[in-house]
Design a protein around this nucleic acid. Sequence first.
DNA 1: TAGCCTCGAGTTCA
DNA 2: CTCGAGGCTA
Length: 693
Amino acid sequence: MGRSTTKQEAKKRIEKLRQEIQHHDYLYYVLDKPEISDAAYDTLKRELTALEKQFPEFITPDSPTQRVGGPPLEKFEKVKHKIPMLSLQDAMDENELNDWEERIKKLLAPSEIKNLDYFAELKMDGLAVTLIYKNGIFFKGATRGDGFIGEEITQNLKTIKSIPLRLRMDELDEKTRKKIENGEVEIRGEAFMSKKAFLELNEEQKKKKEDLFANPRNAAAGSIRQLDPKITASRKLDFFAYQIVTDLGQKTHQQAHQILKKLSFRDNPHNQYCKNIKEVIDFHKKISQIREKLPYEIDGVVVTVNNNKIFEKLGIVGRTPRGSIAFKFPGMEATTKVKEIVVQVGRTGKLTPVAVLEPVRVGGVTISRATLHNEDEIKRLDVRIGDTVIVQRAGDVIPDIKEVIKNLRTGKEKKFTMPKKCPVCGSKVIKKEGEVDYYCSNKNCFALQRRYLYHFVSKKAFDIEHLGPKIIDQLIEEGLIEDAADIFSLTQGDLEPLERFAEKSAQNLIEAINKAKKIPLARFIYALGIRHVGEENAQLLAQQAVAKLKIKSEKLKIKEILKIFQNFSLEDLQRIPDIGPVVGKSIYDWFHDKKNIKFLEKLEKVGVELEVPKIKISQKLAGKTFVLTGALKSMTRDEAKEKIRLLGGDISSSVSKNTDYVVVGEEPGSKYEKAKRLGIKLIDEKEFLEMVK
DNA sequence: TAGCCTCGAGTTCA
DNA sequence: CTCGAGGCTA
C-alpha cells in the first residue's frame, strides 16, 4: 500500500474506504454485530488516515477519522459527561512510543523532564464506562458513547460484581472520607468479559441457536447494552478501574490506582510503575509474552505520565490527552493487496496456488505470501489478483487469507484460473474425478524429483546434516546427482570445485553422508516417499517386516527387505491395522514398480545399510496413548516419541477422548486447551521423565 | 453409512 | 497447525 498513488486514484480509494469504514462503524456500534475484526478495521482506518494526511484536500467533516466513537443508541437514556471521556492516541511500535516521549519533552521544563516517570497498565479490550458515586453510594453509570454523551446503564452496571455499590472508606484519611461522604466521586474503568465467560456464553448462544459473538469485547458490549438487566446479570462481566476523575488527593497516577484499590475496586495486578521509557518498553515486551495466557483479552499497554501536574500541563490535543498513549500490540490481522497468484508444485505433483501479497506486518512479522490451498478455496473466497484482503495469523504462525473486501474492488481485478500445464515442466495438468486437487501428469517432473530429494534427506528420513534444499539445488544444477542414491556416491573431489565449498565444508558434508548410510528401518521406509506412508505407517511397516525375519540380526540388507515386501500380497498389507485398501495398494504398487526396485538396488550398491529396530524394552506403557505439545527441556520431541515407543506406548498427533496422557512442554499449543476441555490427564516434563525412566 | 479418530502433506517466517 | 482423506467402528 506504500505505492505512489495518483491524486485521482487516491480520491477514489478514500471514498471507497470511507464507505466501507462507515458501514463497519454502523455494524459495530449500532448493531453490535461486526463483520470484520477490530485489527482488520484498524488497518483500514490507518490507511484512510494516511491517505487523508497525504491529500488533506479530500478530508470531509463526515469522514470516520473525524470522530471519536459511535452514536449512542436511542433506547437508553443519554448522559452528558461532565468531563469528556477522551480516547487515546496509539503507538504501534517502539519508535512511535519514543516519538511521543520526544514530543512531550518539548513542552516541559528541564526540571520536569528530569523527573519524568510513567505508569503502565494493561489496556483491557472491553468498553470504557464511568461511574458516579454520590455520598459514597453508586448512583449512576454510563458508557463512553461518543466521548461527550453516553448511555445510562446504571442498572446493568450494578450487576457487575466487581463494581462496588458502596465505596470502602476505612483505609482512607479523614479528609478524603469527608469529601466522599459529602459529595460526588467519578471513577472510570473498563468493563470486560473474560475469555472463559465468552466461550461459555457462545456455547449457550449456540444451544439457543442464536447468533454468536465475534469476540469477548463485543460480547461485553452486547451484554451491557441489554435493556433487561436480568440478561446482563446472567453474563459474567468484570471491571477494572483505571481513573479517578475527582480530586481525592492523588498526586500521581500510581497513587490514583492505590486509592482505587482502597475504595475496593479491582485493580489490575500487572500494572506497573516505570521510572523511564525503557522500563515501559520492557513492560510491554513482558506483557506481550504472557498475553495469550491472560484470562482476558488486551490490545496493548496504556502509558501515562505519572505526575498528575505534568499530565495536566500537557493538556489535550484534539480529543486525546497528550500525557497518555496506548502502546498497542501488533494486530493478528491486517489488510493488504494480492499482487499475484503463483502456482507451486509439491512432492506428490500437487499444484498449490499461493497468493503473493504486498508485504504487511501482522502479529510482529512481515507477511508476503499466503497459501490458497486449492481451486475450491479460491472460489470460496472469490480472491482475484489485485483484491484487498484480510490476512490473519491467529494462534499459529502460518498466515491465511480470511476474507476479500469486495467493496474495495475497482473492476480491474483479474480472476485466477488453474494452469492447464505444469508451471515447472510444462506437462499436462490433471484433476481426478471428485477430487479438489490438480496434479502434474509427469512422473518425472523436475519439481517432483527435487521435492523428493528434499524429503529424502530431511530430518525424519535420512537426516543428512549440512544438506538442505539450497545445496541439493546446487548439486542438481551441476549435474552431480540425478536421483537420491547418487548422493551416496559423492566424493570430496566432486564438491570442492563448487562455489562456496571449501575443503572443510566439503569434508563435513561427505562425513555426514557416510554417517547417514546406516539408517533405522522405519526411517528408511519413510524416506522412500511412498504415497500415504508417513512417519506412523512407516513404523507399522517396519514392525511387520521385522516380524517376517527368520534370523534376528542387527543389520539388514535392502535386498531382504525388498523381498519381504514383494511377498506381501495386497490382502496381507490390508490386514495390518490402520492400513486399508488405499494405503495398501499404494504400498503394493510401489514395491512392484520396476523403477523403484532399481532404485532400491542402487541404494544397496552405494552402501546404504538398514538397522533393525530395537526390541521393546518393556510393556510398561502398553495401551497408553500419548500426545505431545510444547517443547521439552531435556530432549527433543522425536526423542520423547522414541522413548514412548520403546516402552510399548502409542503416540498420536491429536487429542481425543482416546488419549491417555498429554505431555505439556513449554509454550504448549492448542492441544493443551483441548486436553483440558476433554479432561485428559495432563503431565509435565518431570512427571513424564518419571514415567519413562 | 455416518461420524469419529488419526495420519499425511503442505505451509510461513525468523 | 490445519485440512482433507483414509480407516475403523457403531
